[in-house]
Design a protein around this nucleic acid. Structure first.
Lengths: 214, 214
DNA sequence: CATTCATTAATCCATTTGGGTGATAGAATC
DNA sequence: GATTCTATCACCCAAATGGATTAATGAATG
């Protein structure tokens, strides 16, 4: 065993924090470098303690774990944040993930699995309680299945124009971008509308995004 | 142990298929109901064999596992599809997930873990190799962190109008939808543009979607 | 009570967009 | 060689949109 994984713990519940502290200190290969009940001193603690992995509770007084996560990532991008919480609602899961969390465990996870997850996240994996993973996958599955995503058969040029539309450009801008006249742009766009069965820029853009045409 | 989990296997490599067959048959609690080298007879096999869990390879002759997955889900929605493959590229991962896969394991996963994953997916979880999970999370992290998602301070009414814009409605439609005059709609929309710092419907809709205002 | 904000509405005007129609040239297909 | 598809451009017209301004009402805030 070369260097130990440096762990920093944020958890406001005293019992839980002490339990985790005990667990982490008793585990070879891990080094607990700190444990705090709130994130008010993140800006000092992260650069000072240089943790490899931060175990982050969500519901804490002051700055929540969700708000603290992007701060950790900006202070020290190589630090991996592992959420360890009781919340299982999609909102909080996705907020945590979008904010830079690399893993998401429920507190009922066994000590063995928590230790495994710490190693896992440190190696570049993303440990997740499987019910959390299901919710994450569910998010993707609300979109169109790719196999039956219809082919609208846009020509190469029409696709380019479509992309410009999705950038929010006006006809004039698109014309300048592609060095063609505005009437040509309009001509392409009319063909696009016909193929997509829409009749306005906004509808076309929405359809293109939803059905992943661009 | 009440009823066994019914497993169906699709894998074109003969050695692998036989190895998996051996493993699955030797495991109590699981019942292998079939193993095939291609998905050409899905439409007969799924309703006939009523599998609880399908183990699906991606790269097969004829219909690939990615194309077969939505067919399985439409033939028998309660069947869980577990991808078992060597491909680790984001495209295929996301295609499989969007098409309805409930788990995604790499073939180098150990037999013990594969068995655990089958139980897991059958219980409603989503087992994923942690490197796969990392890629999935990475997808979300390309978006704006929520904590610093600016608050554009739209009024309740403006938010409603915004939502209608995102549905692709014209001014006239929005007016009808909310029983107000088209001029009122225009008034709200101008305020929205000012707050979002944009100056067209498409830009507003794109910004609303990207920054999750709606 | 004065001020601010949200909601409603209107008018004027310029620009953008959408629909109809037609036309030309080159490439590809049959 | 005829046909079809793509990309280009043009002209006309109507409808939709965007910008500037003004204003009345009511609710909320201070």
């Amino acid at each position: 065993m070369e260097t130990k994984i440096r762990i920093l713990l944020y958890e406001d519940n005293r019992d839980l924090r002490e339990g985790m502290t005990f667990l982490l200190q008793a585990t070879p290969g891990l080094q607990l470098v700190g444990g705090f009940p709130d994130t008010s001193n993140l800006e000092m603690q992260i650069p000072g303690l240089k943790p490899d992995v931060v175990l982050m509770d969500i519901d804490m007084p002051g700055r929540t774990g969700i708000e603290a996560t992007p701060v950790v990532k900006s202070l020290r991008p190589e630090t991996q944040v592992l959420m360890l919480t009781v919340f299982e609602d999609e909102d909080r899961i996705f907020q945590a993930i979008r904010n830079g969390a690399s893993g998401y465990l429920l507190k009922r996870t066994s000590p063995t699995e928590i230790i495994a997850a710490i190693h896992d996240v440190h190696k570049g994996g993303s440990p997740m309680t499987s019910s959390i993973a299901r919710r994450v996958l569910h998010f993707f599955q609300q979109e169109q299945p790719v196999a039956q995503s219809k082919d609208y058969d846009l020509s190469p040029r029409e696709l380019e124009i479509m992309k410009s539309l999705v950038k929010g450009y006006s006809y004039k801008l698109i014309a300048d971008e592609h060095f063609i006249s505005i009437d040509t742009v309009r001509s392409h766009i009319r063909h696009i509308y016909e193929k997509l069965q829409v009749n306005s820029k906004t509808e076309a853009v929405l359809k293109a995004l939803k059905e992943r045409i661009v």
